[in-house]
Amino acid sequence: MKRIKENAIVPSPFTFLLLFIVWLLLTNSYGLGNLLLALFLSIALPWLVRDIRSNTLRVAKPLKTPGYILMLLWDIIVSNVIVAQQVLGAKENLRPGFVAVPLDMREPLPITLLASTISLTPGTVSTEVSEDYSTLYVHALNVPDEQALIQQIKQRYETPLKEIFGC
């Protein structure tokens, strides 16, 4: 588990990259001057807000993130087709339910990412996390098998996130 170094010029490479790309996309010009401005802003803005940054985790294995994002995009497409079938099908066949997913992680950032992932994928929306971060409560549109859903969430999404953050 690695924490962000507060005093480094680029404390978090991901924030830096995100700001850099967002500035370039927003202005939609890719000349040298604009690149320099983007570089300046993406270093200066995190420095200006350094006081409200909590002591968050660093990404331990950055190379695993593109694979996770691609898997997430694929799952979003697949789950949307499933949700479309459920929405347009008979309402009586749906069995909605609240499911409690026990968590292995205790850090706020990976749990936030896991909750967002769950909200975007297979017929589930994360509703609430317990106060001690040990359980994530999920509402699912159709639960034929509660244990299978918990297993799927843990294996498919929690395990890669744990690897990425090394916790």
Partner: peptide, 11 residues
């Protein structure tokens, strides 16, 4: 309501 929440967020 909880079921209605699913459709707009994903589709």
């Amino acid at each position: 309501f909880y079921m209605r929440l699913h459709a707009p967020t994903k589709a």
